[in-house]
Amino acid sequence: MLRIDRACYEAIVAHARRDHPDEACGIVAGSLGSDRPKRFIPMENAERSPTFYRFDPMEQLKVWREMDDRDEEPVIIYHSHTATEAYPSRTDVSLAAEPGAHYVLASTREPDVTEFRSYRIVDGVVTEEPVEIV
């Protein structure tokens, strides 16, 4: 189960809406081993695409180094889908490289409703998990 505080949830949704019609992406970092998302880090979609996202390599390196310095890890890796449901695509699954992370998708396909779902993706297997907003 993903437990996420309302501020992080709202920040992810706002980022997804702000970047629409392109996919938004980023992470929420947390203390090593805690599985508790705390620090929201919106990132640039280097592809600037409505159908694909990719972290800018230099920005990703900077963010991952900063997490190392702060004894953090990516608890949530998120991105948006702009025209489809909030379910990982084959490309999303193939690029999922953090087996301990919650992969969050926010669909902005409906103008007034944001579908928000979380998954674990390990060795190509996608498992949806409940989301609790606290």
Rank of each mutant, 00 (worst) to 15 (best):
I4D: 01
D5H: 13
C8N: 15
A11C: 08
A11G: 09
A11R: 14
V13W: 01
H15N: 14
R17T: 04
R18D: 08
D19P: 00
H20K: 11
I27L: 14
I27G: 04
V28Q: 06
A29T: 07
S31E: 14
L32Q: 11
R36W: 03
R36I: 15
R36F: 06
P37N: 05
R39C: 01
R39Q: 07
R39A: 07
F40K: 04
F40H: 08
I41E: 12
A46Q: 13
A46R: 14
E47W: 12
P50S: 08
Y53C: 09
Y53M: 11
R54P: 00
D56H: 13
D56T: 03
M58N: 11
Q60Y: 14
L61P: 00
V63T: 10
V63P: 01
R65V: 02
E66Q: 13
E66A: 13
R70E: 15
E72L: 07
E72W: 00
E72K: 02
E73V: 03
P74F: 05
V75Y: 02
I76H: 03
Y78R: 08
Y78W: 15
Y78T: 02
H79Q: 04
H79S: 00
H79W: 01
H79C: 01
H79L: 05
H81Q: 05
T84I: 03
T84D: 10
E85I: 12
P88K: 02
P88D: 09
R90D: 14
D92I: 08
D92N: 04
L95C: 14
A96Y: 08
A97C: 11
E98P: 00
E98I: 12
P99T: 04
G100T: 06
Y103P: 06
Y103C: 07
L105Q: 03
L105R: 00
A106Y: 01
S107G: 11
T108W: 09
T108Q: 08
R109F: 10
R109S: 11
E110C: 04
P111N: 12
D112E: 14
D112T: 12
V113D: 13
V113F: 15
T114A: 03
E115L: 11
E115K: 04
F116H: 05
R117E: 00
S118W: 04
V122M: 11
V125A: 11
V126W: 05
E128V: 09
E128L: 11
P130G: 10
V131T: 10
E132Y: 13
E132M: 07
V134E: 10
V134R: 05
